[in-house]
Amino acid sequence: MENKNERRREEILRISGVNPRKCMKCGKCSATCPSYDEMEYHPHEFVYMVESGELAPLLESKSIYKCLTCFACVERCPRGVEPAKLIEAVRLTVIREKGANHLKADDIPAKLDEEIPQQLLMSAFRKYSK
């Protein structure tokens, strides 16, 4: 169990390319996050929880689907930590599991309207499914 957690942590760090130790815990990422209110765990918490190996709560949290990848946190972080890349990597470790797609093709018809741009469907599949 311990080993699996550590392997996952290493995988997250590897595919994100983020070094959470660069964080100086200023909280600017969470100060800047437009989805703050929608999230249970916030960008700065992703950074320190990945660093300390507390992955389970993050993997189970809906917060991983609330990040807009708008990159405000990446842009404004004084230490170049890039929290959004870390959140994306945590989300990918979940949806890359078998049968873990968060968005399925069957869900789409109910959500469609006349004006939905293809770009939205493409983006959503990229972010929520493998």
Partner: peptide, 27 residues
């Protein structure tokens, strides 16, 4: 307040300050 300001938005004659309060766990 332990935390950083993320953005300052001039709206009307106010400056809307969006910041984090890390001790309270709030934006």
């Amino acid at each position: 307040i332990k935390g950083m300001v993320g953005k300052v938005s001039p709206e009307g004659n106010k400056l809307k300050v969006q910041a984090s309060d890390l001790i309270a766990g709030k934006q």
